[in-house]
């Protein structure tokens, strides 16, 4: 993704657009710009493919994470338990 192409998008911007597409946060004009860029840029096409594959893997793994609120709650419980243990 080093070369610059005489298109609307440069490579770093195209990479950002690739990411946004994976999160469904790209409008149709952005998608069109990206398509055009990908037609001429093999490096970005490579990134786009890897990125697509990564999204598929993440979906396949079906990971569940806890919320920040849940984490804060557990941290609080741990701190409380620790202070109770250290109390005489």
């Amino acid at each position: 993704m080093k070369q610059k192409l005489p298109l609307l998008l440069d490579c770093p911007r195209a990479a950002e657009f690739c990411d946004k597409v994976e999160y469904h946060e790209m409008d149709w004009t952005g998608k069109l710009q990206l398509r055009l860029h990908l037609l001429f840029c093999a490096d970005c096409r490579g990134y786009w493919k890897r990125n697509r594959k990564l999204t598929q893997l993440l979906q396949k793994a079906d990971l569940h994470t806890c919320t920040e609120q849940e984490k804060r709650q557990w941290q609080q419980q741990l701190q409380q338990a620790k202070s109770q243990e250290s109390a005489p």
Binding site: L63, H64, T65, C66, E70, K71, W74
Partner: peptide, 8 residues
Amino acid sequence: KYSDYLFN
């Protein structure tokens, strides 16, 4: 470090 892993 571990809450996400353990939760999943």
